[in-house]
């Protein structure tokens, strides 16, 4: 089995690297299993090409595998051989079943959480001066109109929230308003769930279209009150 030792160590090492080391390199992310499989396949074909370059190395590489398959002079590995010979057809059958059986799972929904706003809602700045009075007023409007769903604590856990999927945004979470500009919030509050583009489907957002009920100035004040209350600041490009 000497000639197979190195390739096996290489494959295992590659897998461990892809699975447990690569994700922790700065700027990287965990790899999906399909990509890991592809990389391992490439590694394996690289090994086969390398090992079969010369006639000598080719024999040294294939010989133990042939011996294992034919079961000649492999002693204690005989049980493993039978195991492999039984499991391989079962695995093929299982994979075939998995790819032909009708799924019981509903269609997956690839909703874009923060789709791009229409052009006229990019880069607007809040026209309301950031005074303590205006922030206070914004928080008052927030309590009246927004808090039933988004919560008195700006955490998305208002009493009316329970049936809504997606759940109302949690403004204290750093991945919501903290990574958005005030201009973006202005668009989402004004147009609501029905203002979402196609990539925001399946359009389950219960967000009201507040432009039919509230003047723009109130909406800008609400935005101010939201950032202040949730202890976040709007994203800027400076």
């Amino acid at each position: 089995m000497g000639a197979l030792g190195k390739p096996i160590i290489l494959m295992v090492g590659m897998y461990l690297f892809l699975k447990f080391v690569l994700p922790y390199i700065p700027g990287s992310a965990p790899l999906p299993s399909s990509l890991i499989f592809l990389y391992l396949l490439l590694t394996a074909s690289g090994i086969v090409i390398y090992e079969t370059l010369s006639g000598e190395s080719k024999d040294a590489f294939w010989e133990p595998m042939q011996r294992f398959l034919t079961g000649e002079k492999i002693g204690g590995l005989q049980a493993l051989r039978y195991g492999v010979l039984i499991l391989f057809p079962l695995l093929v059958g299982w994979q075939t079943y998995g790819s032909t059986a009708t799924s019981d799972l509903p269609p997956t929904e690839s909703r874009t959480i923060h789709p791009a706003p229409p052009g006229e809602y990019t880069g607007l700045s809040n026209p309301v001066p950031k005074t303590p009075e205006n922030i206070m007023q914004g928080k008052g409007f927030y309590a009246a109109f927004c808090s039933p769903c988004h919560g008195g604590n700006f955490d998305g856990k208002g009493p009316a929230a329970r049936g809504f999927i997606p759940a109302p945004a949690n403004f204290a979470d750093p991945t919501t308003i903290a990574m958005l500009q005030e201009s973006y919030l202005f668009w989402r509050i004004k147009k609501g769930g029905v203002g979402l583009p196609i990539e925001g489907a399946p359009w389950k957002s219960a967000m009201p279209r507040w432009e039919v009920e509230l003047p723009d100035e109130w909406i800008w004040k609400i935005i101010m009150g939201e950032y202040d209350g949730a202890h976040q600041s709007p994203r800027t490009w400076e």
Partner: peptide, 18 residues
């Protein structure tokens, strides 16, 4: 039950190949 049949055929083919 067709996927059970496909699975059985595939397993039989794999066995034959071996």
């Amino acid at each position: 039950y067709s996927s059970y049949m496909y699975a059985a055929i595939a397993a039989a083919l794999a066995l034959g190949f071996q």
